[in-house]
């Protein structure tokens, strides 16, 4: 897709969203503030407050993301050396996948308290883990048998195989997992923030809700959307392209 087409797509979606939003705000002005008002609210918010809460959210989701990813990669590496571990990890993946974010949040908030950032990190990790596991399991199944035959003939040990063939060939899968996973991480960490009181964008959204300040709710939500789009465009899109550079 060309950059021009891409830009046109963005222009269509953004203008349609604003038109829809404007219409909704005319229909129910009490709870749906108009876009211009929200943008002005956002621009007049103390930048330190914006950046401070953004930093908390990014820190929570990034830590959760890395924790979940490393856990996933570690488990997959282990599973490469034992059939029992391999099947256990598949089951674990299914189980973790079926536990609701709400359940994780409440459990971790009960354990670590509302003032801690740890629940947000752990909840995020638990959501990222199955994404990474599923992608890596698929990538292991997709490794070319012929490639493994060849490395075997070249004298590779099981560990060499893992380090020099399996993990690098799963990089494209890992990059897509990272893209999906970090998007999820950003969206999920704010839910956990909302339950605690250690700050972050999620906390601010609920804070504004409690103050009956719909403009604030919309402004912080808009801020979160913009943040997610920027992170995706500036970090994960390029990362994905890099990981698949030989397929381009």
């Amino acid at each position: 897709m060309s950059a021009i087409e891409d830009l046109r797509g963005w222009a269509v979606v953004i203008s349609l969203s604003f038109i829809g939003w404007e219409a909704l705000s005319l229909w129910n002005p009490r709870f749906i503030p108009d876009p211009a008002g929200v943008v002005i609210y956002l621009l007049s918010t103390d930048p330190r407050e914006l950046l401070g809460n953004m930093a908390i959210t990014i820190s929570n989701s990034t830590q959760g993301f890395f924790l979940g990813s490393l856990l996933g990669i570690g488990l997959i590496c282990l599973s490469y050396f034992s059939d029992l571990l391999r099947s256990s990890i598949r089951v674990l993946n299914t189980v973790v996948q079926s536990i609701s974010v709400l359940v994780w949040t409440i459990i971790f908030v009960m354990v670590f308290g509302v003032l801690s950032f740890i629940p947000s990190v752990l909840v995020t990790a638990m959501v990222v883990l199955p994404v990474v596991l599923s992608n890596l399991i698929t990538s292991m199944e997709a490794v070319d048998e012929k490639l493994l035959d060849l490395t075997f003939l070249l004298g590779a040990s099981r560990k060499d195989e893992l380090v020099d063939v399996i993990l690098p060939s799963s990089l494209p899968y890992l990059a897509s997992a990272a893209r999906v996973g970090y998007g999820l991480a950003l969206r999920i960490s704010v839910v956990a923030e909302a339950f605690g009181s250690s700050g972050g964008i999620g906390f601010m959204i609920v804070h504004c809700y409690n103050l009956m300040d719909p403009k604030g709710v919309f402004a912080w939500s808009l801020f979160l959307v913009v943040l997610m789009i920027f992170v995706d465009k500036l970090v994960f899109k390029p990362l994905e392209r890099y990981a698949m550079r030989w397929k381009l």
Binding site: D144, K146, L150, T151, G155, S157, D160, D164, P168, W246
Partner: peptide
Amino acid sequence: SIGVVPQENLLLPWKKIGSNIELGLKFR
């Protein structure tokens, strides 16, 4: 001892040519 050159080459795309050639020596 046997050396094999597969139909599809099967060079690792994430390694430079030099590192690909070196692979068996590294494994040994």
